Computed example of a mutant assay.
Amino acid sequence: MRILHTSDWHVGRSFHGASTLAHLEDVLLTLAQQVVERRVDVVLVAGDIFDTGMPSAESYAMLGRVLARLQATGARIILTSGNHDSPARLGFLAEFAALAGVHILADPTRLDTPIELEDEHGTVLLYGIPYLEPALLRHRYPEQTLRTQEDTLRFALARIRADLAARPPARSVLAAHCFASGASGGDGERDITAGGVESVPLDVFEGVDYAALGHIHGRAVLAPHLRYSGAPLHYSFSEAGKPRGSWLVDLGAHGVEEITWLDLPIPRPLSILRGTLAELLADPAHEAVREHWISVILTDRVRPVEPMRELQKRFPHAVTLEHEPEHLEAITEGGYAGRVRERGDAEIMAEFLGFVRNGEGPNAQEQAVLAALIAQENNEAIR
């Protein structure tokens, strides 16, 4: 049996205010092509299907198109809910979707009820663990101690292992959405600890042939049978340069035989540019990244006026800007009273401008304006 492990689609998420729906749909349709080309039997999506618990109509429509394309390949589709999803909304009409081979596993009370599939070697049991919020789960099982994410995952795996033990020997695969020890995901996942998503030890996942994890947005191999696929799109500049894709898992008669990484296309790469505004606007080397998502770090001594407007004339997809001057003027020690003692108004204003502009005092035009205002001390403008 051949399984494609993907996760963290985050349908509806924006990238610094720009919609990602069109790019994500293109990438997921490419994934559907890979399913056909690689003769995939099962597509396993490990949580965070949507980016919010209240998806837009456009997000639902896009997901519907993608699932229809995947279902048309003949593969079984298994989706679990993540901490960004609303289990009720994601699982709406799940029973009807299952009739078409699209299985939405968002009910925590059924996490030990697997999807049963057969291949030439026998049965494969596929378990989906929806994101388990300890505070929302413990009232269902008051006899259990469910204070942390580790508690809930240990409880879930104990139930799954008990179900496995009660059945004839079979190969097993599970999908879970959590932050496992040793994983590193940058800031692509915005709320790494929100809602109880704390670190879960790797020994929690013992007893299954393969664990398809979601929540971290970069690929990671924590153990041969325990992996993150990461998100299909870049959702943070911390992910710049990192591949996007999924794991192709081949199950043989006795478990996992081979795991292969499949790259996905990157519709708009991420680039981080550093330099003065003049350098960034003039350097021909930057033409190669003109259509990338751009994060800019300006090194001008003084922050230019409206730099983003100028940058977007050359880089239309520049979305973030920081000012980190290479030279920082030393701050004068002493209190304000000492610095202004025996100084005239023009000197005080010049020092103030130099203080707030990293050592660059008033230019000739500004000096003339200051002098004119000071000369008209009783003028309304001064007051």
Rank of each mutant, 00 (worst) to 15 (best):
M1Q: 10
I3F: 13
S7Y: 03
W9M: 08
H16F: 15
G17R: 05
G17E: 04
S19T: 13
V27W: 11
L31V: 10
V36E: 14
R38P: 00
R38N: 05
D41E: 11
L44V: 10
M54C: 03
E58D: 15
M62I: 04
L63Y: 03
G64D: 15
R69K: 14
L70Y: 06
Q71M: 06
T73C: 03
A75N: 08
I78M: 15
N83P: 09
H84A: 00
F92K: 04
E95V: 10
L99C: 06
V102R: 05
I104N: 03
E116D: 10
E116F: 00
T123R: 15
L126T: 08
G128D: 02
I129R: 02
L137A: 04
R140W: 14
R140M: 12
Y141E: 02
R147L: 12
T152S: 10
A166M: 00
P169T: 12
R190W: 03
G196M: 05
V197S: 12
F205P: 07
G214Y: 03
G218A: 14
L222E: 00
A223H: 07
A223K: 10
A223L: 02
A223N: 06
H225I: 00
Y228T: 04
P232Q: 04
Y235M: 01
S236R: 11
A240G: 01
P243F: 06
W247V: 07
D250Q: 14
D250S: 14
A253K: 13
G255I: 03
L262V: 14
T276G: 15
L281A: 08
L281V: 06
E287M: 02
V289H: 05
V289T: 12
I294Y: 07
I294C: 12
I294G: 05
P304H: 05
P307L: 07
H317K: 12
T320N: 00
I331Y: 08
E333G: 14
Y336G: 01
G338N: 13
G338A: 15
V340M: 02
V340T: 12
D345K: 13
A346K: 13
E347I: 04
G354V: 05
G354S: 14
F355K: 13
A364E: 15
Q365R: 15
A368N: 06
N379T: 09
N379R: 09
E380L: 14
E380N: 08
